[in-house]
Design a binder for these strands. Structure first.
Length: 759
RNA sequence: GGGCGGUUAGCUCAGUUGGUAGAGCAUCUCAUUGACGUUGAGAGGGUCAGAGGUUCAAAUCCUCUACCGCCCACCA
């Protein structure tokens, strides 16, 4: 046993692996070296100048708060992709940034201000509010960056972007102008989703439906009985609609006028026959309120009916409501029912459960309103300026919707797991024009200016005598810029190329990126990794913007990860108190353990259940590797490492083949993004095979074998440790890098992360 | 109402083009001052939700059913 007592190794191996004590130093050494930046890697000779590019944009976290464990999972997956690509010699760029998140951030800051100072936004003023929001955003940003670094993300910070910075603003104005000129962005009076709480419009996607139990009332409406859950909207109802085939109402003719007694006195109602009516629902008859209902609006459009506003922007009844004018709809409802009852018009009431539309960010109950807003037309044709899209030629007449469908249908952009392609198609097919104007202050101002006429009227609306849309403000006096800002997803839709230098790096004449620019080298990006919950919000919008503005896809592959849930499968939320802060876990178990626990046992598109025990288990694994290294270094580290050792014993030859086969297998799986399988296989091999069996068997060999056998085994152990550190590095960068420092390997590059993937 | 998933060991989940079921954790038994504060060896445990079909062969392909989950959708 004498030769076993040669612990000529770093003293650090005599203690268990100390993640907390080594992670920070390793990260700052990586960062300082500049190798996260592909340009520096090329300059220093680590990456070949003509190497294939691998690029990925970080889905920019919202500056509304700090990173949660879901972000940690995202960072872990992306860092694996990035480190793997880098180790394969690719010109690798991972580009970071943050998202201003418009409504989300502004409403959060407004909440804080109201809580602390009892002041509303109009009491604070545009300038001061923006100052406060920026201050908040900047704090959030700093926290996010430091959390990201703790995870070990090998990100190129020199290229960091923000969706609301100068360059991105220029990109937004340029994109807007082009869409405006093509007629794809237009302003019009349409029915939109009004959030009375946030005092802004929101897009269809920003609505969340909540179940609500209400009363469903039946009222006498002349000869009819109509059903409604919203009596407060019924003041202006003067059209009564039924199905043309409904035999119960065959005696009434389309267009027929009927005088009847209603809430505030006698009115004249007109009969409308329309096929959209469900004969089986209620009495099969309804009255319509086109100003405050999408369906009613469509019916009114079909027959050119009058539309009247009943409810104002703050949710109060207008003068048309007579004695109820000025009341909040929530208060007025019961009183109106009371009055109708008193007039003998209430037939009956029932309990009713329905889905109520609310604003995702403020929780306000959506009130549809007809308003003059900006939209992106998804069904309008235009001529494609240039196209690298399969099946679409330059100059061809297309719609945005067609572009969005085409690139996924023809496989230019693949979505993983692939069943989400069906979800994507389903969404696109039901897509309506996208309302992009918001009545909030935090965001990109709409690059449109108006000259007002003498007549008074709604600003930016009817009183306008001249409209100008441009990247920059028009010259001359008396121009006023549109007050509104853009939906936050407009700027994030440009993210893959606005971060790479578009539009400066773009040659509009040739329809190509300028040679040598980031845009030319790194776009389309290789892969987009994000949560399935923003497939519509973001992924689809990026496809829209990129296919339209560049005539190219934004990314070749979309990898959708699932949500991280707690050990019992519940969503993490403040009220449940089950939120896990990734930094707490890292401090306790190390970033490597956290990363691995977010990878193994997950698969793309499926939610992941995370318990602290799981993380703990992988902390044990990090320590296991540490001790394996200690063993190999003390018992086999005394012979010089030979990269191409040719004199393996027969037994070691077999072991070598086994290990090569494993590496070949996992390389293929890495290319297929099956990180959960690779992680598990490497775990199995290292612990169950290498440590439990091979190392155990090595004792007698090293003790009693011939000199040749001993040398062979020592080489094999060193080789295997080196290769395992390499393949494990993308998963567990810290512990592997730390061990690597002590490996007696010649010709080492500056870091393990720069070494070549073994194959 | 429309769409998409899931159902495999006590728990969490793998299972690549069909070839008599796997891992981690948990449980039980034994060993252990040996690189391992975080160790090893072994064991038990599953008619793969149910029914039918295709096939020499089905967890895997097809049809139906049941239950669970998610997304979309203003039956007023």
């Amino acid at each position: 046993m004498a030769n076993f007592k040669e612990p000529n190794i770093d003293a650090k191996f005599l203690k268990p692996y100390d993640s907390a004590g080594t992670e920070e130093a390793n990260y700052s050494a990586w960062e300082k070296s500049g190798y996260f930046n592909p340009d520096i890697s090329v300059r220093k000779g680590v990456t070949k100048p003509d190497a294939k590019a691998f690029s990925i944009v970080l889905p920019p976290p919202n500056v509304t708060g700090t990173l949660h464990i879901g972000h940690a999972a995202m960072l872990a997956i992306e860092d694996i992709m990035v480190r793997f690509a880098r180790m394969r010699g690719m010109k690798t760029l991972w580009l970071p940034g943050t998202d201003h998140a418009a409504i989300a951030t502004q409403s959060k800051v407004e909440d804080i201000i109201y809580k602390e100072e009892k002041k509303r936004r109009h009491e604070i003023g545009r300038e001061e509010l923006l100052r406060r929001v920026n201050e908040f955003a900047s704090k959030s940003h700093d926290t996010i960056v430091s959390q990201t670094k703790k995870m070990g993300a090998s990100i190129d910070w020199s290229r960091e972007a923000f969706t609301l910075d100068e360059k991105r603003n220029f990109a937004v104005r340029t994109a807007f102008k082009q869409m405006y000129d093509d007629g794809l962005i237009f302003k019009g009076h349409r029915i939109i989703n009004w959030d009375p709480k946030g005092q802004t419009t929101i897009s269809d996607d920003e609505i969340v439906y909540k179940e609500e139990k209400v009363k469903f009332y039946y009222f006498k409406y002349g000869p009819f009985i109509i059903g409604t859950s919203r009596p407060e909207t019924k003041f202006g109802d003067k059209y009564v609609v039924m199905h043309p085939d409904d035999g119960r109402y065959a005696d009434f003719k389309h267009g027929q006028k009927i005088d009847l007694e209603w809430i505030n006195g006698p009115i004249s109602a007109t009969v409308i026959k329309d096929k959209s009516i469900d004969m089986a629902f209620g009495t099969g008859v309804m009255t319509i309120t086109p100003w405050h209902s999408n369906v009613d609006f469509e019916i009114a459009e079909r027959y050119k009916l009058d539309k009247e506003q009943i409810i104002d922007k703050t949710g109060r009844l207008l003068p048309i409501a007579g004695e109820f004018a000025g009341q909040k709809i929530t208060e007025a409802r019961a009183k109106i029912v009371e009055k109708l009852k008193a007039k003998g018009l209430l037939e009956k009431e029932e309990d009713y459960t329905h889905q109520i539309a609310t604003a995702e960010r403020t929780g306000g109950i959506i009130e549809p309103q007809i308003m003059n807003q900006w939209f992106i037309a998804v069904n309008k044709t235009f001529k494609a300026k240039n196209s690298k899209l399969k099946g679409i030629k330059k100059g061809q007449e297309v719609t945005l919707k067609e572009l969005m469908l085409t690139v996924v249908k023809n496989g230019q952009t693949k979505i993983l797991p692939d069943h989400f392609e069906k979800v994507y198609f389903n969404w696109i097919e039901n897509l309506h024009d996208w309302c992009i104007s918001r009545q909030i202050w935090y965001g990109h101002r709409i690059p449109v200016w108006y000259k007002k006429s003498e007549k008074s009227g709604e600003k930016g609306g009817d009183s306008v005598s001249e409209t100008y849309c441009g990247v920059d403000a028009p010259t001359g006096d008396s121009w006023t810029q549109d007050e509104d800002t853009l939906d936050t997803w407009f700027s994030s839709g440009l993210w893959t190329f606005s971060t790479l230098g578009w539009p400066d790096a773009w040659d509009a004449v040739t329809g190509e990126a300028k040679k040598g620019s980031d845009l030319a080298v790194f776009h389309p990006t290789s892969i987009l990794e994000t949560g399935y919950d923003i497939l519509f919000f973001w992924v689809a919008r990026m496809i829209l913007m990129s296919t339209y503005l560049l005539g190219d896809i934004p990314f070749e592959t979309v990898y959708l990860h699932g949500l991280v849930r707690d050990g019992q499968g519940r969503k993490m939320s403040k009220s449940l108190g089950n939120i896990i802060d990734p930094v707490d876990l890292i401090n306790k178990y190390g970033a490597d353990a956290v990363r691995l626990s977010l990878i193994i046992g997950t698969s793309p598109g499926n939610d992941l259940k995370l318990s602290e025990d799981k993380v703990k288990g992988y902390k044990h694994f990090a320590n296991k590797i540490w001790n394996i290294s200690r063993f190999v270094l003390s018992y086999a580290g005394d012979v010089p490492y030979e990269e191409n050792f040719a004199k393996y014993s027969e037994a070691d030859m077999k072991l070598n083949e086994e290990r090569s086969a494993l590496i070949e297998e996992i390389t293929k799986e890495m290319e297929e993004y099956k990180f959960y399988i690779v992680g598990e296989k490497v775990y199995q091999y290292i612990w169950r095979r290498f440590a439990d069996q091979i190392l155990e068997e090595s004792r007698p060999v090293l003790e009693k074998g011939t000199p040749e056998e001993i040398l062979s085994r020592k080489q094999f152990l060193q080789h295997t440790l080196v290769k395992m550190l390499l393949v494990l590095h993308p998963f567990m960068p810290f512990v592997t890098e730390e061990i690597w420092k002590s490996m007696p390997v010649g010709n080492k590059k500056d870091f393990l992360m720069l070494e070549n993937w073994p194959l």
